[in-house]
């Protein structure tokens, strides 16, 4: 068994129009599967649903690191129909991202989910739990149209699991069996999304033989991962 694919183009070649794709991209370039995003742009699939914490980041040049590639690339290329996210727009209304410009024109759909609810929906999807109740969002617009039930005196909202056709993962190390490790805060949504897609593709810095990542250091066991591409 060897899950290594030789190019990013090959890794995303079977992404069809209308696919649902999970990808990380928290608040900076770390954890962003930049090469897979570029390959998806070149693949050209349209009508995509993107599940992600953010929906495209501003340029972080002022912080000393430029973000060359984010979801903005896919938005600007007109490939995205819908976004499921917790932090979809830039913090400053004066600097709208590509998603917000499309949203204002009614050209893209948004499903807004609190961040912890989004994380748990993805975790649940990967774990075979179809839905769960959470106190987060009860009594707010997020609960509108959803079942609300009281547990131990607290109102809780029924939230449904999320699954995807593909997950684009940014990991640090992989072995050829698909076991992954992450660096620092780039684990956050990556390690969850890896579990919740039919086809999980990992973009990594380094590919090792089995045993290269110690069994205690493996954060995503290879059972979840279908394809690995080295940057």
């Amino acid at each position: 068994m060897n899950k290594v694919v030789s190019s990013f183009a090959e890794a995303v070649a079977d992404v069809p129009d209308g696919a649902v794709i999970m990808m990380d991209g928290f608040g900076g370039p770390g954890g962003m599967p930049q090469h897979l995003i570029l390959a998806l742009r070149d693949n050209g699939a349209k009508g995509l649903t993107i599940i992600s914490n953010t929906a495209g980041l501003p340029d972080f040049g002022s912080l000393g690191v430029a973000v060359a590639v984010t979801h903005n690339v896919l938005m600007e290329n007109g490939q995205v129909r819908k976004v499921i996210a917790s932090f979809p727009v830039s913090a400053s209304p004066a600097r709208p991202n590509a998603f917000e410009l499309l949203y204002r024109e009614g050209k893209i759909e948004l499903e807004l989910s609190p961040q912890g609810t989004l994380a748990e929906r993805i975790r649940a999807g990967g774990a075979g739990i179809p839905a769960f109740y959470t106190p987060t969002g009860a009594g707010t617009p997020v609960a509108q149209g959803k079942e609300v039930r009281t547990f131990n005196g607290r109102a809780c909202v029924l939230e449904h699991a999320l699954l995807a056709d593909f997950a684009f993962i940014r990991a640090h190390q992989a072995d050829t069996l698909g076991n992954l490790s992450y660096r620092g805060t780039s684990r956050n949504f990556n390690a969850l999304m890896a579990t919740a897609a039919r086809i999980t593709i990992a973009e990594v810095d380094e590919v090792m033989e089995p045993g290269g990542i110690g069994p205690e250091a493996i954060m995503t066991p290879g059972i979840y991962v279908k394809r690995i591409v080295k940057r």
């Binding site: 608040g27 900076g28 770390g30 914490n53 972080f60 912080l63 912890g116 805060t185 684990r187 956050n188």
Partner: peptide, 27 residues
């Protein structure tokens, strides 16, 4: 370090005793 940020996207220094986790655990 692009893999060491807080929720606002600010970069952090490595600090003894810090722990990393996925977002389901964080929440």
């Amino acid at each position: 370090d692009i893999d060491l940020i807080n929720a606002g996207g600010q970069f952090l220094l490595p600090t003894p005793g810090m722990a990393f986790f996925n977002s389901a655990e964080g929440f």
